[in-house]
Design a binder for these strands. Structure first.
Lengths: 197, 197
DNA sequence: CCATATATTAATACCAAGTCCTAAATCAGT
DNA sequence: ACTGATTTAGGACTTGGTATTAATATATGG
């Protein structure tokens, strides 16, 4: 019996093992068709299909679709990144206010704290936006993350021009959550009609 | 004839307009089937197919597949999604290199110059990534955009730990394009097991 | 007004990569 | 030899198409 069980389990393992390989192979390359997998495992297509059923693995097209959908959501937030925060008010060459609500895509999954560069991006793009010029680019900046910002918090960035030269402005940006300063930065922004950064 | 041309162009516009809408609709939602689009445009499926042919738009499955493939390349870096750019090399608590290719979504449409916060994001996330801790957050930073970076350029960010304390590190990041420095920054990063920014 | 493009619709056969279902074959263990 | 699990096979149907051919507007040029 023990011996038989050995043989038995050898066969069972063949199945289990195949399914294990299936899962692994699809993790590595989700674009594999049942036909491909059947060839690889030297079994019939139907066997692979049964395996997928048992393992609850959707068909190729569904797998691909899911990946694409995830990606699409990502793309959405990428294009949203173009406009970091919503501009609430702007006085060209003087001041501006923008609002950014911290969402899932802005935070570290582990601790729900906003990634610094989103706060920077909000401040930076606001600073650039209030400059009255064809082209405005940040030259340098000094920034401080005063306290961590958490998921769901609404960041109000207040930008104020400190010094206003013909080709160079210094802009102070203070970001607050419920009146509490969470970020502070000074941006040196250059304006030109051609380039600079 | 002018009158006829008017009618003519009205019809032609119907087609052009429909194709314009098609492109737009698919940009907004690439998961639309021909059938759906046919209903929306109140034409036959065949017309939509012809339109796709003319416009060189691949079928639904191909579109989805492409998205999924792009995503898949990015899936590897999904765990690295924490980091903007692709990490090339990391020595924890010592140094790191990441690469970011400037694409359309990173530049100002007007002048094809990369928005500063992407360069910042690359540098910032690399700085945070090389810190060997449960949680690492940027406290402050001083940065300089040395020269503008253009569409298509590949930015290599080199991060190096300058001072390495138990709870605080100073990290210098220099970003280069073809050996030329384009960005330079010093990041104060805090490591904790709970929070801080 | 008729011929001639251009645009649209229809109809058919075919494909990939499946699902769902039924039935048969195989095989291992007792 | 029988039982139960496993594997194959087969056919019908599905989606979302391609490719091709043909018929039908529709519009404009002359």
């Amino acid at each position: 019996m023990v011996i038989n069980k050995g043989v038995n389990s050898a066969v069972r393992m063949a199945k289990k093992e195949r399914q294990r390989q299936l899962v692994k192979a699809l993790e590595e390359d989700p674009f594999l068709t049942d036909e491909e997998m059947a060839k690889r495992c030297r079994v019939s297509i139907q066997t692979i299909r049964l395996d997928r059923m048992e393992l609850g693995i959707p068909e190729l097209r569904e797998r691909i679709k899911h990946m694409a959908e995830n990606n699409f959501d990502g793309v959405r937030s990428l294009s949203l990144e173009e406009v970091i925060g919503e501009v609430v008010d702007i006085q060209l060459d003087q001041s501006g206010i923008s609002m950014l609500e911290i969402k899932k895509e802005h935070v570290f999954a582990r601790n729900q704290i906003a990634r610094g560069h989103y706060l920077f991006a909000q401040a930076n793009s606001l600073a650039v936006a209030i400059v009255d010029a064809e082209v405005a680019l940040t030259g340098s900046a000094g920034i401080r993350f005063v306290r961590p910002v958490r998921l769901g918090e609404k960041c109000l960035a207040f930008a104020k021009v400190i010094t206003n030269g013909p080709s160079r402005l210094q802009i102070n940006v203070q970001t607050k959550v419920n009146g509490e300063v969470v970020f502070q930065g000074v941006f040196d922004v250059y304006r030109t009609d051609e380039e600079g950064q």
